[in-house]
Design a protein around this nucleic acid. Structure first.
Length: 183
DNA sequence: TAGGCCATCTGGTCCT
DNA sequence: AGGACCAGATGGCCTA
């Protein structure tokens, strides 16, 4: 949510990832911003969201009594008995609190999955050759992926060129090491 | 204010 | 059966 949050100056004609390390080929999509501020990668904590209107109406239509919000943060251990037993039932036979509990559990899993994905994305950003730092806005996801692709292509071309030069100099000898590289 | 980027929710599908 | 994965929808924040 608060991805591009806080102290951001401006987005000066953001250099698109394709413009960086552009190995001649490929043409990607647009790119995100580049410079600017930092980003706090926090998320909307764990406050359980309200049931969606559709779900509520569906449940009330099914004659289910609408109750208060249930406790959250149950994903790990507690409440497993109720949720696991209830989730084995047919959903139509589940009570509203059971359905709500199940929904919260699924939502929590999905949130964690996306957080893990973002962590991996941050890891990718860390190894990308662009200006890091607290005063620099981090790459958007799409920009990160496009830049990564171009960077890999550039490195591949560099390696090929290096191989070619080595073979020129040594006449085909000493290529064992380079050929062992996964290119 | 429009557009970009993002987090979250949700239902469907696939996999183990 | 349960979890992982995916895509669409929605709403918030920020910048130009």
């Amino acid at each position: 949510m608060d991805s591009d949050a806080s102290l951001v100056s401006s987005r000066p004609s953001s250099p698109e990832p394709d413009e960086l390390f552009l190995p001649g080929r490929n043409k990607g999509g647009g790119g995100g911003g580049f410079t600017g501020g930092t980003v706090s990668s926090s998320t909307q904590s764990d406050s359980p969201p309200e049931l969606s209107a559709e779900l509520r109406s569906a449940m009330s239509a099914a004659g289910v009594v609408v109750v208060d919000k249930l406790g959250f943060k149950s994903s790990s251990s507690s409440s497993s008995s109720s949720s696991s037993s209830s989730s084995k039932k047919d959903k139509k036979q589940m009570t509203e609190p059971e359905l709500q509990q199940l929904r919260l559990k699924i939502n929590s899993r999905e949130r964690k999955r996306m957080h893990d994905l973002n962590i991996a994305m941050d890891g990718l950003r860390e190894v990308m050759p662009y200006a890091h730092g607290p005063s620099v806005r981090k790459l958007s996801k799409i920009a990160t992926l496009l830049l990564a692709r171009n960077y890999i292509l550039m490195l591949t071309n560099s390696l090929e060129e290096m191989k070619r030069l080595v073979s020129e100099i040594y006449g085909g000898h000493h290529l064992g090491l380079l050929n062992a590289l996964p290119v």
